[in-house]
């Protein structure tokens, strides 16, 4: 199943957590693959395992059992150092609460992952800010921006290391409708340039705007619907 046309391949993924004396199975035998250039949504009720799956796809955690391969590399059993390198090189993250550092300017926030990758990223950060229409805000602090602007900065930050996979956790959850639509347009534009985009969302409109919807419930994959082009 692991082919070069896939950005991610999940096979019988299981993720268990300890909560006190109890073991919680957050993902229970989930299998799917994400092709290069796909844009898909992961939906489901709270507690379905959406965020857990996103964390596994983002190399922030490893599965308890099963196999997850990102860009041809299995994440199972990888040391923290290797997972960090994969996050840095392969994945871009967009958070619901934007997660911008309040002490940094917009341009510095965008360049931050470049700093961790030991790259001079300021020029690229300026290009990305131009791309998301915020070059005039580059010296501003996050608290001076609207929610939509902050999320666009967060998207620019996620793109700074040229990732193969863009992961977004409820990217419009904190935005008004107009800003949400603007962010969706940005995701569509990035996807149309070949970037693989995975959205975790409760927002039906956002999910329907993607090409594929994976539905989770109680840690199981209950449906995987592809929209015909």
């Amino acid at each position: 199943m692991i082919g070069t046309e896939n950005t991610a391949v999940a096979e019988a993924l299981v993720k268990e957590y300890r909560r006190g004396a109890e073991t919680v199975r957050a993902l229970d035998g989930v299998s799917f693959e994400i092709r290069h250039g796909e844009m898909l949504a992961i939906v489901g009720p709270s507690g379905a395992g959406k965020s857990t799956l996103l964390h596994l796809l983002g190399c922030m955690d490893t599965p308890t059992s099963g196999q997850l391969t990102i860009n041809g590399r299995s994440t199972s059993g990888l040391a923290d150092r290797e997972l960090t390198r994969m996050r840095r090189e392969l994945v871009g993250f967009v958070f619901q609460h934007f997660a911008l550092l309040p002490t940094l300017t917009v341009a510095e926030n965008v360049a931050l992952p470049g700093l961790f990758a030991r790259r001079r990223a300021q020029k690229h950060a300026d290009e990305l800010l131009e791309r998301v229409g915020l070059s005039h805000r580059r010296t501003h602090r996050p608290h001076e921006l609207s929610g939509g602007e902050m999320q666009r900065v967060a998207i620019a930050r996620a793109l700074i290391n040229s990732p193969k996979l863009l992961l977004a956790d409820e990217p419009t959850g904190n935005l008004d409708t107009a800003s949400g639509e603007s962010i969706l347009s940005l995701f569509r534009a990035l996807n149309s340039e070949g970037l693989t985009v995975v959205l975790v969302t409760h927002n039906e409109a956002l999910a329907k705007a993607t090409n594929r919807i994976i539905t989770l419930s109680d840690g199981k994959l209950v449906s995987d619907l592809r929209r015909s082009e």
């Binding site: 983002g58 922030m60 923290d80 150092r81 960090t84 996050r87 840095r88 090189e89 871009g92 993250f93 958070f95 609460h97 997660a99 550092l101 931050l112 992952p113 961790f116 990758a117 930050r157 996620a158 290391n161």
Partner: peptide, 16 residues
Amino acid sequence: TSEIGMMRAVGASKTD
């Protein structure tokens, strides 16, 4: 804590 989590998510190593 959340900022540290964000930095780790975007590629900061433990050493960073």
